[in-house]
Design a protein around this nucleic acid. Structure first.
Lengths: 211, 211
DNA sequence: TTGTTTAATTTAAACGATTGTTTAATTTTG
DNA sequence: CAAAATTAAACAATCGTTTAAATTAAACAA
């Protein structure tokens, strides 16, 4: 007898992945559990069975995926062989690579940053951002103190890095219009576009910081 | 006899303004018409009476407020006395001023850019962005051709300008944490912070473009 | 001004549909 | 056989919207 349903190794993970796609497209409130259950091919009750509630599913999503950039940052920060500007270059590449690998997830995070009604979730995401911000700001400040960097605004410089990336990530349709690609094209699958973005942000940081 | 209700010159406008605040805080789907009616001090039926539907209320919001930057851009573009870099500086100041004057409205727009489920609304907002993008990109390309600007990526340069601004705008709580302000502080009311942001973005553009 | 008529506004109540969640029975698994 | 997973069905609550009656405002003739 042939199995009709896919052999999901971990149904929890499958639900999380499908939820990210739906949340990114329709938003958290705009996505119903029935939408999700249908799309994931499971019963309506399974979401509450696995996660307890819709909101806890959201927390599970954040808990599972949001801390990845921490590891990347820690490795770069611990690398004594890198100069400050090389660290920043590596961080930029790390961010773009990560965001391009999971564009829908980071769209969900951005949505939650904009919507402040789910207080706990909002603060959790901000905490993550703040820690990363302080690390990058620290590198910039160190470079300024040692005289390698010009005296810029460290916090807003990081805002420019992440902001540029988020701007590109916020709407695929907009990217496609600007690149004359068809409407349903996925710009985040395009390695040339990814390279172009990395180069641009690095250029911005170089121009702003290096004397 | 004293009037109990406030003398709203235009109830339509009052509803729009309250809706912007609620949509910015809770999102479009996260805001119920009952929420809005209660907050605005009107009956539940009034939203549909004035706008026809919740979605048309949203369209009314966009139609009323979204085209303002066009006028600002047109004036700057038509000013023959300005050099390219002066135009860009003026555009940056215009954008920051506008966004700081109506931070909640622009948060609503950003949300709608992230959520692509309401197709018509999504495209409308993108059209507005695209037009403005093309104008700014045009200035940068002109500067590059005449040899005044370095050969940068014009589209992504605009993404950096708007992206930096949107990043700052996306969460007041984050701004406050970075500036060591209390949780309920409104950073967009702070003229020094506004000046700081204008200066930073202009610095970025100068560093990136000027030889 | 006056009273009358018509239109615009506002209201409370109800509409059906959909929401997240729970239940209790059933099937699958180890 | 016991535990875990899955199901269909129902739960109360809330959603956007509509209705039909009540109120207010505007228009107009006398």
């Amino acid at each position: 007898m042939v199995k009709i349903t896919q052999p999901h190794i971990d149904k929890r993970e499958h639900l999380i992945n499908e939820a990210i796609e739906l949340f990114a497209e329709k938003g958290f409130e705009g996505t119903s559990i029935r939408d999700l259950a249908t799309r994931a091919g499971v019963n309506i009750a399974m979401v509450n069975y696995y996660f307890g509630s819709k909101e806890k599913l959201f927390e599970a999503i954040v808990a599972k995926k949001a801390s990845h950039m921490r590891g990347v940052l820690d490795i770069i920060l611990a690398n004594k062989a890198l100069t400050e500007i090389e660290k920043l270059d590596a961080i930029i590449e790390g961010y773009v690579t990560r965001f391009f690998a999971y564009p829908t997830f980071h769209r969900v995070l951005q949505q939650e940053l904009l919507v402040s009604s789910r207080d706990h979730m909002h603060e959790t995401i901000i905490e993550l951002f703040i820690r990363n911000t302080k690390d990058v700001v620290g590198i910039i400040q160190k470079g300024i103190k040692s005289g390698v960097f010009k005296k810029v605004d460290p916090e807003l410089t990081f805002a420019s890095i992440i902001g540029t990336l988020n701007q590109v990530l916020s709407s695929a349709m907009m990217c496609n219009k600007l690149m004359n690609k068809p409407k349903d094209y996925n710009p985040y699958d395009n390695p040339q576009f990814k390279k172009r973005l990395i180069t641009h942000i690095q250029c911005v940081v170089h121009a702003l910081l290096l004397k």
